[in-house]
Design a protein around this nucleic acid. Structure first.
Lengths: 136, 136
DNA sequence: ATCTTGCTGCGAGCAGTTCGCAACAAGGAA
DNA sequence: TTCCTTGTTGCGAACTGCTCGCAGCAAGAT
């Protein structure tokens, strides 16, 4: 993962310094999506702004993507972590991932009927999870 | 619209001052969704923070809702402005509204299969509109 | 080993939104 | 009508999530 991404970066004339390497490794280690702040916190000596910059580079390489959930910070994950869609409970904050094919029909109809090609999974859908169904 | 919303507010022990009245009227006048900043700009003498506060009150009254589109500020609209879902083109920023029933199947499946009840239309889907289909 | 140029930490800056405060005024009670 | 309580308002400062400019460092081609 590191080596392959690093090679991709170098092929574009970019370099792979300490911060960049650590961010990639940290993302690869993670089972699930993280905030930029969260990544930085786990990497002492790596500044948040470097994390954001690295994530931006990796994003236009196509190696990572980010999702906005509710009103907080965005979450970042490797793209090959699968392409599930994110749901977030606006009550308890719980965050779940569902198969993208649930969205396939909708996306096809939006494309066919409205000429609109959805940027897959850039936003989480907000709502209520089973547990918080009838909370205030 | 004003009178009815004002009555609802008073019934809850709230009051209807100048700013609040103007925000409600401005929303009712608008055909489409606006930013808080935009509302404030159209109401000289009404401070942005009052606009945000009024919108928050109206939102938990259920009279307005907000949608996040892309990375910019949220848009606000009256709930009875219809319940179309918002799409926003990440290239040109164009914003379109499509019928909510396109989302009905998806929402039913999320509820049935995952126990998740979607908060209707809190987020816009981002993607590419017809015009910007194959831009950089 | 050298040298170019990209990367990095740092702090300041920015947009969108929220908060604390003191003055004000809505609207029920008298 | 006047009074009084208490919600509302304008204002500015604060906060959060993110971006930028800069000067020093170091990756990696030669």
């Amino acid at each position: 993962m590191l080596e392959q991404t690093a090679a991709q970066l170098r092929a574009e004339g970019r370099r792979v310094g300490a911060a960049r390497r650590q961010v990639i490794e940290a993302l690869a280690d993670r089972a699930c999506a993280v905030t930029a702040e969260g990544l930085a916190a786990g990497l002492p000596g790596v500044h948040v702004s470097s994390v954001y910059r690295t994530l931006a580079v990796l994003e236009d390489l196509g190696a990572v993507r980010h999702v906005h959930l509710g009103h907080g910070p965005a979450l970042w994950e490797l793209t090959h972590a699968g392409d599930g869609r994110h749901l977030v409970c606006e009550h308890c904050g719980r965050h779940l991932v569902v198969p993208a094919d649930l969205f396939a029909d909708l996306e096809r109809r939006l494309a066919d009927e409205h000429g609109f090609v959805v940027d897959r999974g850039h936003f989480a859908l907000t709502g209520r999870c089973t547990a918080c169904h009838d909370e205030p």
